[in-house]
């Protein structure tokens, strides 16, 4: 596997949320808005990359029997650090994510990558794996966050929890301006499907997104199978024609 493949495998092919269904707790709990999903994703990228690096450094020193507690201590250290930094530099995000920041410690994705990859590979490869998988996880969270926030409010906001690049909250996208071309005084937020901000809405969103992804995957597989079938039939036909031609040649030769 090349370094680029290692980095990008987590985006789609081995996406932790949509393919492996790992880290479903934050996927359900903190994806009520695009911003909280992005915030959680950034924290997981930080923890996953650094814990992978640390575990890779110590991989030959940690005895096999005590590897799980050792990994947990390492992961918990980075989670504690990330919590302190969030409390210091992004307090609103820390309040919004609440208990789900310390719960990163028990995110199966992080322990899973430590066990499956970082404990067996070099520091550079482990760092790339952690960063790539973290980005894939963030991508998954952001997709769910955008889906839920858009259905619940009709728009996407930024700047409420993440105090970076903007001074005040900004609307990244809203349906208001399109609808206001036809009707005045229309606020899309009044018609949002509020259920999508609730935990039930989180399950529904993930279910809908997973069914869409699986539908596309199965359709692609079916297409490939049909193509394969066609190719096999074509090969059979060619082989049959060749056989017939050969038989005709043999017959002509005999005459």
């Amino acid at each position: 596997m090349t370094k680029l493949q290692n980095l990008t495998k987590g985006f789609f092919k081995e996406n932790p949320i949509f393919v492996y269904l790992l880290g479903m707790c934050p996927s359900l709990a903190v994806t009520g808005s695009f911003e909280t999903a992005l915030g959680m994703g950034i924290l997981v990228v930080f923890v996953l990359t650094l814990s992978n690096v640390a575990i890779s450094i110590f991989r030959n020193l940690i005895p096999t029997e005590v590897r799980t507690p050792a990994y947990i201590v390492i992961i918990a250290t980075f989670v504690t650090i990330v919590q302190m930094l969030t409390n210091a530099f992004a307090l609103d995000l820390s309040i919004a994510l609440g208990v789900f920041i310390p719960l990163i410690v028990v995110n199966c994705l992080i322990l899973g990558r430590a066990e499956a990859f970082a404990s067996k590979n070099s520091i550079i490869d482990s760092a790339i794996d952690g960063f790539g998988m973290g980005l894939g996880f963030t991508l998954g969270l952001v997709v769910i966050g955008i889906f839920r926030e858009f259905l619940a409010t009709g728009g996407i906001m930024y700047g409420i929890y993440l105090p970076f690049f903007v001074d005040a909250p900004v609307t990244l996208f809203s349906l208001d301006w399109i609808i206001n071309l036809f009707a005045t005084d229309f606020a899309i937020t009044d018609y949002g499907l509020k259920i999508f901000t609730s935990p039930a809405g989180a399950f529904m969103s993930i279910g809908l997104i997973l069914s869409f992804i699986n539908f596309r995957r199965l359709r692609k597989e079916r297409k490939i199978n049909i193509e394969k079938q066609k190719m096999i039939e074509e090969k059979k036909r060619i082989a049959l024609e060749k056989k017939k031609a050969k038989e005709a040649l043999v017959k002509a030769g005999a005459e």
């Binding site: 110590f58 020193l61 940690i62 005895p63 005590v66 507690p69 050792a70 201590v73 390492i74 918990a76 250290t77 504690t80 650090i81 302190m84 930094l85």
Partner: peptide, 16 residues
């Protein structure tokens, strides 16, 4: 080994 990991972890948290 566990002691070393614990000391490094504690030190990092103290620093931050």
């Amino acid at each position: 080994v566990l002691l070393i990991i614990g000391v490094i972890s504690g030190g990092s948290i103290y620093l931050v």
